[in-house]
Design a protein around this nucleic acid. Structure first.
Lengths: 186, 186
DNA sequence: AAACGAATGTTGAATTTTCAACAAATGTTT
DNA sequence: AAACATTTGTTGAAAATTCAACATTCGTTT
């Protein structure tokens, strides 16, 4: 992709996130964004049709960033090092995800994350457990929901424990399913 | 000036300063700059003919920034608040000016600064002292050289005293000339 | 209700940046 | 010395951004 596109989109999204934290979504105007990002107002419309479209794309982007960060670190999303990567990435970008996760558009971000993680979990469950095809759906949604619940808890409570501890406890809870589903190579 | 020009020049100069601090001038390549600034290599040549030209423009820019910062704060360069502004600005951008002032291209930066300050001092001296036209040149160069000497000392020794103290002592030294030359309105 | 300023989208022409490809110069390795 | 990779500048076409101008909508003021 053209460098210019990357730069202006980064610039727009970053200032959008900043303004989100400062003003809240309703009070943000396209003017605000263009002005602070030092970008022509028309250019914003060249990439996003709306304030709402911008929010959507923003969420989409940060969901994908979160996932890419753990997908890169290991072969399957359920590996130990993948867990670690997710928490570490969240720790680094704490303010952004706290915002996106606890904002009015809560549903959007959570649903998007849920859908994608559920898909990956489905694949892993399908591959690793050759047996009961009946309980696969239940297993998938149980694990996905549980996992996301932990992430939400950790972010909402401003990282009440270290990454290390979070991963350890998560693995402990997953112990019963670990044997068949979670791969342990570091 | 077009926003794009401002942005790319800022970007180029900033990464150039960074690389100057890291590698030193000789080891810097146009590739380095373009790569780190995330700018097309050709674009660099669109603004600067050379590594050397870039250094020149860089010095020119930072000299002017320094002067604009004190020219804005008061009517004449020799006012009290102007002194304060200069030192405050140097304090904020310490690393950059320490680099430009102590680097191999020392002469360039100092000479450029000297020329511009000397010109302003000449004007002030010419205006404020209607008397002995003979000693004007001597006065000008004495004051200019003294002033720049203090700046250099302050930067080279990593700001050994506070801005407040520096300005006070400078005013104390200038006391004999102050009556006729330095304006005291804040 | 009318007037008003501010924000919204849209448009077309001008300008800048990008990209890829090139030839030449430089420096390093074998 | 020859082969080699790297850096240097340059070029032209493609793409993106800017700017200024416009009509429209929205919320507020009078």
């Amino acid at each position: 992709m053209d460098r210019r596109i990357q730069k202006t989109r980064h610039s727009i999204m970053n200032t959008f996130i900043d303004l989100l934290a400062e003003k809240g979504f309703e009070k943000i105007t396209i003017n605000d964004i263009a002005e602070r990002a030092n970008i022509n107002r028309g250019t914003v419309y060249l990439h996003y049709v709306d304030k709402f479209d911008l929010l959507d794309k923003c969420i989409e982007t940060y969901v994908e960033l979160l996932l890419h960060h753990c997908a890169n670190s290991a072969d399957t999303i359920l590996s130990v090092s993948a867990f670690q990567s997710v928490f570490e990435y969240l720790e680094k970008n704490f303010t952004i995800y706290k915002l996106l996760l606890s904002y009015e558009g809560v549903g959007f971000f959570r649903n998007r994350l849920y859908a994608i993680i559920a898909q990956t979990v489905t694949e892993v469950v399908g591959i690793k457990s050759g047996n009961s095809a009946l309980s696969n759906d239940v297993t998938t949604h149980f694990l996905t929901s549980g996992f996301i619940g932990v992430l939400e808890w950790w972010i909402h409570n401003s990282m009440p424990c270290s990454v290390q501890e979070a991963v350890e406890q998560l693995l402990y809870v997953l112990e019963p399913y670990t044997k068949h589903l979670v791969s342990h190579q570091s």
